[in-house]
Computed example of a mutant assay.
Amino acid sequence: MSALVTGDAVVLGLRPARLPSRALALLIDMVVAWATYLIVSFALLLATASLDDAAQAAIAVALFVLVLVGAPIAVETLTHGRSLGKAACGLRVVRDDGGPIRFRHALVRGAMGVVEILLTFGVVACIASLVSERGRRIGDVFAGTLVVRERVPAGRAASIPPPPPWLMGRFAGLDLSAVPDALWLAIRQYLTRMGQLDAQVSWTMAARLADDLVARTGAPAPEGVPPAAYLAAVMAERQSRDARRAFGAAHASWGGGGAGTSASPVATGGASAVGPAVPGPLDKAGIAAAPTWTAAPPHIAAAPSAPTTRPGSEPDSPPATGFTPPA
């Protein structure tokens, strides 16, 4: 797997798409585009039969540009890199840093696609993808984009650390409908690898992702909450909502709130149960370090839950989250 590296030297676990899957996605897109072009051309031919040859030629050129060039650019811009063929094959166009593409990226890709796909029947694009280490065609190189696989085996996905207990259920009323899938993917990739990053790099990347998330939700992050903890709590809330929609409230995962889940300890003054401990970050040899236990924050330490004890054993330690509570 070729690694994607952000500007902060953070490696993202996105898998670049290779030529076979990209060729299949392109074939689907071209079949749809050419079918649309022929149908619209036939309809316009009947509607403009009374016009002279020059007018018909101008209409034909305009139709070619709109359907075979403009339409793919518009689709990639509106769907943030997912055309019909790419959606069918589980692919997406992203920026070199893993973020979602914008109109200028789609415009450059579409303009170069006229030369390397339409005029050369895809020969130039195939050669460029075979030569490139990450399977990029010339349009991707000029636009600073990359086609990646969205569907990865579930068994290989790293687990996301649970949020701090004092943030559980705190974002139950947050509107997450405007957050795009690409931002969720970037947050997930960060949370699964934040323990392996330099502290300054991790904080900078968490702050950037938190700002993007705040801009999408329209609600400011709570004061005093570290950016990484805020991201983990919002991600847990989103996973809990997905679980409730798919399986009902009884199967909702940790981090919920709202219907079917218990209120947060901040709201009730008590303490709620949390998930099992999560191992610490990997060391240089690739072995997980022992988890580090974190104490509850001062504002809920006055009402701790009763520890679970067994005869002849010490009380259970609090669950590890990997986050330090605010001072």
Rank of each mutant, 00 (worst) to 15 (best):
residue 16 P to M: 02
residue 184 W to I: 03
residue 72 P to Y: 03
residue 298 P to Q: 05
residue 177 S to G: 07
residue 244 R to C: 13
residue 144 G to S: 01
residue 252 A to M: 03
residue 96 D to H: 07
residue 137 R to F: 05
residue 15 R to Y: 04
residue 170 R to A: 08
residue 184 W to K: 05
residue 106 A to S: 12
residue 74 A to F: 11
residue 217 T to Y: 13
residue 248 G to V: 00
residue 213 L to A: 03
residue 108 V to G: 01
residue 8 D to S: 12
residue 15 R to K: 11
residue 30 M to Q: 15
residue 291 P to V: 04
residue 45 L to Y: 11
residue 249 A to R: 04
residue 13 G to Y: 15
residue 237 E to L: 02
residue 121 F to C: 13
residue 215 A to Q: 11
residue 121 F to P: 05
residue 56 Q to W: 08
residue 286 G to Q: 10
residue 170 R to Q: 12
residue 9 A to I: 09
residue 180 P to I: 10
residue 158 A to M: 09
residue 54 A to H: 02
residue 34 W to Y: 13
residue 155 G to W: 15
residue 301 A to H: 01
residue 282 L to T: 13
residue 77 T to C: 04
residue 58 A to K: 06
residue 323 F to Y: 07
residue 19 L to H: 11
residue 215 A to I: 09
residue 114 V to Q: 01
residue 128 A to F: 07
residue 12 L to E: 02
residue 156 R to A: 12
residue 22 R to N: 05
residue 326 P to W: 01
residue 183 L to Q: 01
residue 196 Q to G: 09
residue 37 Y to C: 06
residue 108 V to Y: 00
residue 269 G to M: 01
residue 204 T to S: 12
residue 177 S to K: 06
residue 156 R to G: 15
residue 173 G to S: 11
residue 250 A to Q: 11
residue 263 A to G: 09
residue 5 V to T: 04
residue 68 L to G: 04
residue 215 A to N: 03
residue 171 F to V: 07
residue 158 A to S: 10
residue 89 C to H: 04
residue 167 L to Q: 06
residue 99 G to Y: 02
residue 201 V to C: 08
residue 137 R to Q: 08
residue 79 T to E: 00
residue 248 G to E: 01
residue 313 S to H: 14
residue 233 A to I: 03
residue 290 A to L: 14
residue 310 R to Y: 14
residue 210 A to M: 09
residue 278 V to F: 12
residue 232 A to I: 05
residue 291 P to S: 00
residue 140 D to L: 00
residue 325 P to I: 15
residue 23 A to T: 03
residue 137 R to T: 09
residue 119 L to M: 12
residue 90 G to T: 04
residue 96 D to E: 15
residue 185 L to Y: 08
residue 262 S to M: 14
residue 246 A to W: 13
residue 263 A to T: 00
residue 162 P to S: 09
residue 6 T to E: 02
residue 194 M to Y: 15
residue 8 D to E: 14
residue 217 T to F: 07
residue 5 V to S: 10
residue 273 A to P: 03
residue 204 T to R: 15
residue 191 L to P: 07
residue 18 R to C: 00
residue 204 T to Q: 14
residue 107 L to Q: 00
residue 291 P to A: 10
residue 215 A to G: 02
residue 286 G to D: 05
residue 45 L to W: 15
residue 257 G to Y: 05
residue 38 L to E: 14
residue 101 I to S: 00
residue 201 V to A: 14
residue 60 A to F: 07
residue 290 A to M: 10
residue 318 P to K: 11
